[in-house]
Amino acid sequence: MIMHSTQQAYRKLLEALSFPGKVNSVDTCPNDFSPLISQTGLICLTLLDSEVAFHVAEENNLITETLHAYTGSHATNARNADFIILPLSSSDEEIVKKINQAKIGDLVRPHKSATIILEVESLKYGYKYSLKGPGIKDTNQLNCTIRPEIMENRKNINAEYPLGIDLILVDQQGYVVGLPRTTQIMEVY
């Protein structure tokens, strides 16, 4: 039943955001959300409903319509979205642009900020990053294909804690990593 799939996916997400950098696997989605990665579809089913609004990068109509149909959530622009979905096909420029436009909340209501679901090639290889912050004992290491410029951009938008964005990364193998705004990321050479 779908309620058990979303419950299990939620617990993986909660674990991912509680232990930033921990690579979790999420089940595939019973519904077809292509061209999104199946796990991204299940995460959207888990988190989206008519009380929140979402935005898909590059105004991908097919994805937008499917998400709306399955979740009842409404599409909006990047500035007003509670969830921004960046499919694997998004260019680096597009990712940077959407992150810059995302809601970061205000000091009274820092929770009125966007969660960004970013699809990446891999969460097992690529650039090496060292992570620090709540949820991490000492330091944690993340290997992923996200370019350092994008991480730098994330750092800039999260500069004024508690304002900022939270990232959920999904890779092609269906692995998931959470990077809440509290995580400090440094590239390791």
């Binding site: 888990t46 969660t115 939270d166």
Partner: peptide, 26 residues
């Protein structure tokens, strides 16, 4: 329903918990 609450209510609580984790103590 499973776990008493309807799915819509669970979603809202689940989102709030995720925000709480992202902003410790808030």
């Amino acid at each position: 329903p499973f776990a008493f609450l309807d799915e819509q209510s669970k979603k809202e609580i689940r989102r709030s918990v995720l925000k709480g984790v992202a902003i410790p103590g808030y």
